[in-house]
């Protein structure tokens, strides 16, 4: 099968891969470049565990054609922390015990990041709306919503590491 070369930036680093026609971004991330943080949950766009950011917008990697990512920036949970320094969302998820099995966590974090990047102080309803495409089967969502609200509050409170170097 003919392959197409695709170059994109992944968490700030250049990547070049050959992809099959019709191959999705999730497969390219996981099997192509070895970023396993985005998960396969349904392949149908109904569970959100493969949520990544493409040029800052949340996208379902399983429904995103890899070829359409040529020349664009892709961000995954692996790039969320700044070296050893956790992103405020990661810290908040830890403090609120907002993960159990952890399988939805990467996608949930990326959906939350997309929200906070465009809306620094969301309401509880806006948080629920932003993660409404992300299935979590363990937590009942409550601690996840609390964590996102808390991260927003703490970021709004001053020491906003993100503002220094928005990565997208």
């Amino acid at each position: 099968m003919a392959k197409t070369p695709v170059q994109f930036r992944l968490n700030g680093s250049d990547k070049a891969v050959f992809v099959d026609g019709g191959e999705n971004l999730l497969n390219v991330l996981r099997r192509g470049v070895g970023d396993m943080s985005a998960k396969y949950g349904c392949g149908q766009g109904t569970c959100g565990v493969c949520t990544v950011l493409v040029d800052g917008e949340p996208q379902l990697a399983c429904l995103t054609l890899a070829e359409t990512c040529a020349g664009r920036s892709v961000d995954t949970a692996l790039g969320l922390s700044d070296g050893p320094n956790l992103h405020p969302l990661q810290t908040a998820f830890m403090e609120h015990f907002a993960a159990q099995c952890g399988f939805c966590t990467s996608g949930m974090l990326m959906a939350a990041k997309a929200l906070l990047d465009r809306n620094a102080s969301p309401t509880r309803e806006e948080v629920a709306e932003a993660i409404s495409g992300n299935i979590c089967r363990c937590t009942g969502y409550e601690p996840i919503i609390n964590a996102i609200m808390d991260a927003a509050a703490k970021r709004g409170g001053g020491s906003n590491r993100e503002q220094g170097h928005a990565r997208v």
């Binding site: 949970a77 692996l78 922390s81 830890m94 015990f97 952890g102 966590t105 974090l109």
Partner: peptide
């Protein structure tokens, strides 16, 4: 939790995360 840091950094390895 012992596994929490792995969960929030996307580094927890499940069965399918082996190449």
């Amino acid at each position: 939790r012992q596994d929490m840091l792995g969960h929030v950094t996307g580094r927890t390895r499940y069965f399918d995360d082996h190449a």
